[in-house]
Computed example of a mutant assay.
Amino acid sequence: MADATTKAIIDTISRYLARCTDDELEAVRKKFNCVMRLDIAESGGTSSYVLDLKSQCTAGPLTEQSPSPHVTVGLSDEDFVRLVNGSEGHQRLFMKGRLKVQGNMMLLDHITSLGRLLDAAE
């Protein structure tokens, strides 16, 4: 995804999930089985997104109706894009202090797997 941003990635995933068949959604649920919250530092402040890849299979901005996350990840927009496209690893970002995690840290591997959802969406 050229000139990718977190918002563009979330929008692409959201559109992909909306057009998936029931069988495809079940495969997504089986693979991810979690709710992730992303707190993304951008030039104008922080934006929060929720990826519900457990029950509803939706992706979008955080709302009052969003489910409770299994993991909350805080990082910059640029670092999130690098994680999803595979050019940076979450372990490296965490060790550098550029990635903050609350909740189930083991679910960080799923962020890199989001790149496969993007490949399927395009």
Score class of each variant (00 low, 15 high):
L117A: 02
T72S: 14
G97P: 10
E64C: 09
Q65H: 14
M105D: 12
A41V: 00
F94M: 10
T112M: 13
V81G: 06
T58L: 06
S48H: 12
T72F: 00
Q65E: 15
K96G: 05
A2D: 15
D77L: 00
S76G: 04
F80V: 11
E24I: 00
A4C: 10
C34A: 05
H70M: 13
V73S: 06
A41L: 09
A18S: 14
S14A: 14
L53F: 06
G60Y: 04
P69S: 02
L53S: 11
D119V: 06
G86M: 10
V35T: 07
L107N: 07
D79P: 00
L62R: 12
R92P: 02
D11Y: 00
Q102F: 12
Y49D: 07
C20M: 06
D119A: 11
A121M: 11
N104A: 09
E122Q: 13
F94D: 04
V84N: 02
P67I: 09
L51P: 04
V28A: 08
A41H: 06
I40V: 13
A2G: 15
E26I: 03
A2F: 15
R82Q: 15
G45Y: 01
Q102G: 00
Q91N: 15
M106S: 11
V73A: 05
R116W: 08
K7T: 14
E88R: 14
T12A: 13
C34F: 01
R15Q: 12
N104T: 07
L117P: 00
M36D: 02
F94S: 07
S47E: 10
R92C: 04
I111F: 08
R19C: 01
T21P: 00
T112N: 01
L108E: 06
K100S: 12
S68T: 15
V81D: 09
Q102R: 11
L62N: 03
G45Q: 02
T12S: 14
Y49P: 02
D39Y: 11
A121W: 07
F94K: 11
D11F: 06
F32A: 09
M95T: 09
R116N: 03
T58P: 09
